[in-house]
Amino acid sequence: MPNIRRFIVYILGLVVLSFGIAFSIRSGLGVSPVSSIPYTLSRISGQTVGFTTTAFYSFCIVLQLVILKKDFKLRHLLQFVFSYVFGLFTDMSMFLTRNLATDVYPVRLAMLAISLVLIAFGVYTVVLTDVVMNAPDGLVKTIADHWHIEFSKVKSIFDVICVSTSIILSLVFVGNITGLREGTIIASLSIGRLIGVVSRRYKEKIASLYT
């Protein structure tokens, strides 16, 4: 039963994370760095954010395979399942929040704040349950371990690459920068700290759900 409960809590973490992404998009104030490429690809291709998220995450898994080669294990391969399921949850969350878009700036800020809290809880729950790591973080960890670089440094560089790539794709294919605003900067500066707060205050409560 503990393993089943752990998996259920993990799935709940994915759902919470997907709603965090949906709220950040609906706020219209900019998505988080790791969501910037899927969002931009969605605007370019006309596909759903869930579909492009699955595609981007799958690309991150392929890069892990290229780096790890024979050290690529079944645990890494399971990230494909995570990516597909998370893509479905993201589309579900986008559908359920479809009527929340507004032009009222204070409300947008409130939605952004909600998104940051949801993302922090979602990310921490997924990490704490330790079922399957999400693909972008899996790629960051793979690079950090393979070349013996501090995880946080690789994460920071990865976020910059995501945002830079999103800007280039937006300018080339859309003609303007899309999905990147003050909320992107706020997310970059605050999500890590919020995860720290969740870890300190809610670790035992979250863990008690599956232990």
Rank of each mutant, 00 (worst) to 15 (best):
Asn176Gly: 12
Pro136Thr: 03
Phe95Tyr: 11
Thr125Gln: 02
Asp145Thr: 11
Ile177Ala: 04
Leu116Val: 04
Val123Gln: 01
Thr102Lys: 04
His148Pro: 00
Asp159Glu: 14
Val131Asp: 00
Leu112Gln: 05
Ile143Gln: 05
Val131Gly: 02
Asp91Cys: 04
Gly175Pro: 12
Asn134Ile: 06
Phe151Leu: 13
Ile177Met: 01
Val172Asp: 02
Ser164Phe: 13
Met133Ala: 11
Phe95Leu: 07
Trp147Glu: 06
Ile157Met: 13
Phe121Leu: 09
Asp91Gly: 02
Pro106Cys: 13
Ser156Met: 13
Thr90Pro: 05
Ala101Gln: 08
Met111Lys: 01
Val126Ala: 01
Val104Trp: 15
Asn134Ala: 04
Thr165Phe: 11
Leu109Tyr: 03
Ile177Pro: 03
Lys153Asp: 10
Asn134Pro: 07
Val107Gln: 03
Val104Ser: 11
Val140Trp: 01
Val126Tyr: 04
Leu100Gly: 03
Met92Gly: 00
Thr90Tyr: 00
Val132Asp: 01
Leu96Cys: 03
Gly175Ser: 11
Thr90Glu: 08
Ser156Thr: 15
Leu88Ser: 01
Thr129Ile: 03
Val107Trp: 03
Leu169His: 09
Val127Phe: 12
Thr125Ser: 10
Gly87Val: 01
Ser170Trp: 02
Ser115Thr: 06
Trp147Ala: 08
Val172Trp: 14
Asp145Asn: 15
Ala113Met: 12
Ser93Leu: 01
Ser156Ala: 15
Ala144Asn: 06
Ile143Val: 15
Ile168Ser: 13
Gly87Trp: 00
Asp137Phe: 05
Phe151Tyr: 15
Val154Pro: 01
Asn99Gly: 05
Leu88Tyr: 03
Asp91Lys: 01
Ile157Ser: 12
Leu169Phe: 12
Thr125Tyr: 04
Ser170Arg: 02
Ala113Phe: 14
Val154Lys: 04
Tyr105Cys: 01
Met111Gly: 00
Asp91His: 01
Val127Ser: 08
Leu118Met: 13
Gly122Arg: 06
Val126Ser: 00
Phe89Cys: 10
Met92Ala: 10
Lys153Trp: 00
Thr142Asn: 07
Arg98Met: 04
Ile143Ala: 09
Ser164Ile: 12
Phe173Arg: 10
Ile114Phe: 11
Ile143Cys: 08
Ser166Asn: 11
Ile149Asn: 00
Met111Gln: 09
